[in-house]
């Protein structure tokens, strides 16, 4: 019994981490129809910068803030100077993918040059680095924290999208970006803000994830398909989809690794195949 509780908890908290990554990916796609292949790179960059900030200042909270902001700035830079010029629409999709792949390789090599090839870990403050015992089962507090951050972010994003004027503009832009432009809303500025926000979330996920799975060369490529699996299952451009997809992928991945270590990645295949067979745009996605 304790195995199932422990693994479920591990899966849920891992899902929380994936939500930070995938919600940004999903938001960016929803507003701009850009698939950001460099999203995993934002994640590792957040983690690496987090490592350095903790080393230099000793403050983990500062690392959370600075690393996420730095990644957000990088995201805005990429969008402003490289992605915007490609325009909108289906014809721009593949070029946008290729440009972000280019950044993926550049960030990959830059992080090896700056931080070296050895695995690193973001040092977690001692008040989060212990385990809580409930009924004979140990729950790492850091994992509880990950889940809490994801929930807080999910609620904040949901409130922001549903209850604010900016959120209404974003939703309008997701539904029909041409019409939204026609109404006189500056979708360029909106796109920039959303790209920055998506990058911010990935950077935040990187610092938090860097305290738990660590960070090493190649992690960018490994985590990206998980984020993709989340949005394939949940549907692109929906917050609900990202949330549910994250939980499904988090649980499937964790149980897969625990129960069938040899076939662990295969356990992601099943839910994707089933969801797509029923609904090609994902559970909450719209065509």
């Amino acid at each position: 019994m304790s195995f199932w509780i422990e693994q479920t908890f591990a899966g849920l908290s891992y899902g929380g981490l994936l939500f930070l990554l995938a919600s940004g990916l999903s938001l960016i796609f929803g507003v701009m129809r850009i698939i950001n292949m460099a999203h995993g790179s934002y994640f590792i960059l957040g983690a690496y910068i987090g490592v350095t900030v903790v080393e230099v200042t000793g403050s983990w909270l500062l690392a959370l803030l600075l690393a996420s902001l730095a990644v957000a700035i990088l995201g805005i830079f990429m969008h402003r100077f490289f992605l915007r010029v490609l325009g909108h629409g289906v014809a721009a999709e593949l070029p946008q993918v290729m440009i972000t792949v280019g950044f993926l390789f550049i960030i990959q090599q830059a992080s090896i040059d700056i931080w070296g090839g050895d695995p690193m870990i973001v040092k977690v403050p001692s008040y989060l680095d212990w385990s809580m015992e409930i009924g004979g089962i140990f729950f790492p507090v850091y994992r509880i924290f990950m889940l809490v951050v994801a929930c807080v972010m999910a609620v904040t994003l949901w409130l922001g999208l549903e209850k604010t004027r900016a959120g209404a503009m974003v939703r309008a832009s997701v539904d029909d970006s041409e019409m939204t432009r026609g109404l006189g809303i500056n979708t360029e500025r909106l796109s920039m803000a959303i790209f920055g926000l998506g990058a911010f979330l990935a950077g935040l996920g990187g610092v938090i994830g860097g305290g738990f799975i660590g960070v090493y060369p190649g992690l960018d490529f490994q985590i990206l398909p998980l984020a993709f699996a989340v949005v394939i299952i949940g549907g692109l451009g929906t917050l609900r989809g990202a949330a549910l997809g994250s939980l499904i992928v988090g649980l499937m991945d964790t149980f897969g690794k625990a129960l069938f270590p040899e076939l662990s990645y295969f356990t992601l295949f099943a839910p994707m195949a089933i969801v797509l067979a029923i609904k090609p745009t994902g559970l909450f996605g719209r065509a």
């Binding site: 999709e93 993709f228 692109l236 994707m272 090609p280």
Partner: peptide
């Protein structure tokens, strides 16, 4: 599975499926 998806969904799906095969090569 993949042909059911269009555009970028197709792209993400083929990538995720390929990663499953990589996962098998790595873990099996």
């Amino acid at each position: 599975i993949a042909i059911r998806a269009k555009g970028v969904y197709f792209l993400m799906l083929t990538l995720a499926l390929a990663m499953v095969v990589w996962g098998l090569a790595w873990r099996w």
